[in-house]
Protein backbone atom coordinates (compact mmCIF):
# COMPACT_ATOMS: atom_id res chain seq x y z
CA UNK A 1 0.00 0.00 0.00
CA UNK A 2 1.34 3.41 -0.89
CA UNK A 3 1.67 6.22 1.60
CA UNK A 4 -1.01 8.17 -0.28
CA UNK A 5 -3.48 5.28 -0.04
CA UNK A 6 -2.69 4.86 3.62
CA UNK A 7 -3.15 8.56 4.30
CA UNK A 8 -6.51 8.69 2.56
CA UNK A 9 -7.76 5.78 4.64
CA UNK A 10 -6.32 7.26 7.84
CA UNK A 11 -8.06 10.57 7.17
CA UNK A 12 -11.33 8.72 6.55
CA UNK A 13 -10.95 6.97 9.89
CA UNK A 14 -10.03 10.12 11.83
CA UNK A 15 -12.52 12.48 10.21
CA UNK A 16 -15.52 10.20 9.78
CA UNK A 17 -15.40 6.89 11.64
CA UNK A 18 -14.03 8.16 14.93
CA UNK A 19 -16.54 11.04 15.27
CA UNK A 20 -19.29 8.63 14.31
CA UNK A 21 -18.19 6.27 17.03
CA UNK A 22 -18.15 9.07 19.60
CA UNK A 23 -21.59 10.28 18.58
CA UNK A 24 -22.99 6.78 18.84
CA UNK A 25 -21.35 6.28 22.22
CA UNK A 26 -23.08 9.41 23.45
CA UNK A 27 -26.37 7.95 22.26
CA UNK A 28 -25.49 4.59 23.81
CA UNK A 29 -25.95 2.75 20.52
CA UNK A 30 -23.81 0.02 18.99
CA UNK A 31 -24.03 -2.07 15.86
CA UNK A 32 -22.77 -5.35 17.27
CA UNK A 33 -24.58 -7.34 19.92
CA UNK A 34 -22.53 -6.69 23.05
CA UNK A 35 -25.60 -7.25 25.20
CA UNK A 36 -26.20 -9.19 28.39
CA UNK A 37 -27.15 -12.83 28.71
CA UNK A 38 -30.52 -13.81 27.31
CA UNK A 39 -32.71 -16.89 27.24
CA UNK A 40 -31.97 -17.36 23.57
CA UNK A 41 -29.54 -15.88 21.11
CA UNK A 42 -31.25 -17.13 17.95
CA UNK A 43 -31.93 -14.16 15.67
CA UNK A 44 -33.82 -13.48 12.44
CA UNK A 45 -31.98 -13.83 9.14
CA UNK A 46 -29.85 -10.87 8.07
CA UNK A 47 -29.77 -10.64 4.31
CA UNK A 48 -29.64 -7.74 1.90
CA UNK A 49 -30.97 -9.81 -0.98
CA UNK A 50 -33.23 -12.47 0.49
CA UNK A 51 -30.52 -15.05 -0.19
CA UNK A 52 -29.76 -14.51 -3.87
CA UNK A 53 -29.60 -11.54 -6.21
CA UNK A 54 -29.15 -11.30 -9.96
CA UNK A 55 -27.17 -8.31 -11.12
CA UNK A 56 -27.36 -6.76 -14.53
CA UNK A 57 -24.21 -5.69 -16.34
CA UNK A 58 -24.72 -2.10 -15.23
CA UNK A 59 -24.95 -3.11 -11.57
CA UNK A 60 -21.45 -4.55 -11.36
CA UNK A 61 -19.40 -1.36 -11.24
CA UNK A 62 -18.16 0.00 -7.93
CA UNK A 63 -20.52 2.97 -8.18
CA UNK A 64 -23.47 0.68 -8.79
CA UNK A 65 -22.45 -1.52 -5.87
CA UNK A 66 -22.28 1.53 -3.65
CA UNK A 67 -25.75 2.51 -4.83
CA UNK A 68 -27.02 -0.91 -3.78
CA UNK A 69 -25.44 -0.44 -0.38
CA UNK A 70 -27.01 3.02 -0.11
CA UNK A 71 -30.41 1.52 -0.93
CA UNK A 72 -29.93 -1.13 1.75
CA UNK A 73 -28.92 1.41 4.39
CA UNK A 74 -31.87 3.60 3.41
CA UNK A 75 -34.24 0.68 3.91
CA UNK A 76 -32.61 0.06 7.27
CA UNK A 77 -32.88 3.75 8.14
CA UNK A 78 -29.15 3.84 8.89
CA UNK A 79 -28.64 7.58 8.75
CA UNK A 80 -25.12 7.47 10.19
CA UNK A 81 -23.94 5.04 7.57
CA UNK A 82 -25.69 6.87 4.75
CA UNK A 83 -23.54 9.90 5.52
CA UNK A 84 -20.50 7.84 4.56
CA UNK A 85 -21.58 6.94 1.04
CA UNK A 86 -20.05 9.84 -0.85
CA UNK A 87 -16.90 9.61 1.27
CA UNK A 88 -16.60 5.90 0.54
CA UNK A 89 -16.79 6.67 -3.13
CA UNK A 90 -14.01 9.22 -2.74
CA UNK A 91 -11.90 6.85 -0.67
CA UNK A 92 -12.31 4.18 -3.33
CA UNK A 93 -11.11 6.62 -5.97
CA UNK A 94 -8.14 7.60 -3.84
CA UNK A 95 -7.28 3.97 -3.23
CA UNK A 96 -7.48 2.96 -6.87
CA UNK A 97 -6.24 6.08 -8.65
CA UNK A 98 -2.81 6.18 -7.08
CA UNK A 99 -0.37 5.65 -9.89
CA UNK A 100 2.73 5.09 -7.86
CA UNK A 101 4.68 1.98 -7.11
CA UNK A 102 3.82 0.25 -3.89
CA UNK A 103 5.98 1.82 -1.22
CA UNK A 104 5.36 -0.85 1.36
CA UNK A 105 3.11 -3.82 1.78
CA UNK A 106 0.41 -3.38 4.41
CA UNK A 107 1.44 -4.94 7.68
CA UNK A 108 -1.26 -7.44 8.50
CA UNK A 109 -1.49 -9.06 11.89
CA UNK A 110 -1.28 -12.82 12.14
CA UNK A 111 -4.98 -13.03 12.87
CA UNK A 112 -6.88 -11.01 10.29
CA UNK A 113 -9.77 -13.14 9.16
CA UNK A 114 -12.95 -11.42 10.31
CA UNK A 115 -12.05 -7.94 9.12
CA UNK A 116 -10.27 -8.68 5.87
Amino acid sequence: MSRIESQAAAVFFADLLLPLRRARMRRGSTYLDWGPRRESYWSPIISRTGGMEQLSATQCSFSAALALLEKYWSEQNERDLLQLISHLDRLYRDLTAVDVQQESAPTLPEFVYPLF
Binding site: T96, P106, P109
Partner: peptide
Amino acid sequence: LWPAIAASQLG
Protein backbone atom coordinates in the same frame (compact mmCIF):
# COMPACT_ATOMS: atom_id res chain seq x y z
CA LEU B 1 -5.43 -1.64 10.64
CA TRP B 2 -8.08 0.42 8.88
CA PRO B 3 -5.93 1.41 5.87
CA ALA B 4 -5.29 -2.25 5.10
CA ILE B 5 -8.93 -3.12 5.74
CA ALA B 6 -10.08 -0.33 3.42
CA ALA B 7 -7.65 -1.37 0.71
CA SER B 8 -8.86 -4.95 0.95
CA GLN B 9 -12.58 -4.19 1.09
CA LEU B 10 -12.84 -1.24 -1.29
CA GLY B 11 -9.92 -2.04 -3.54
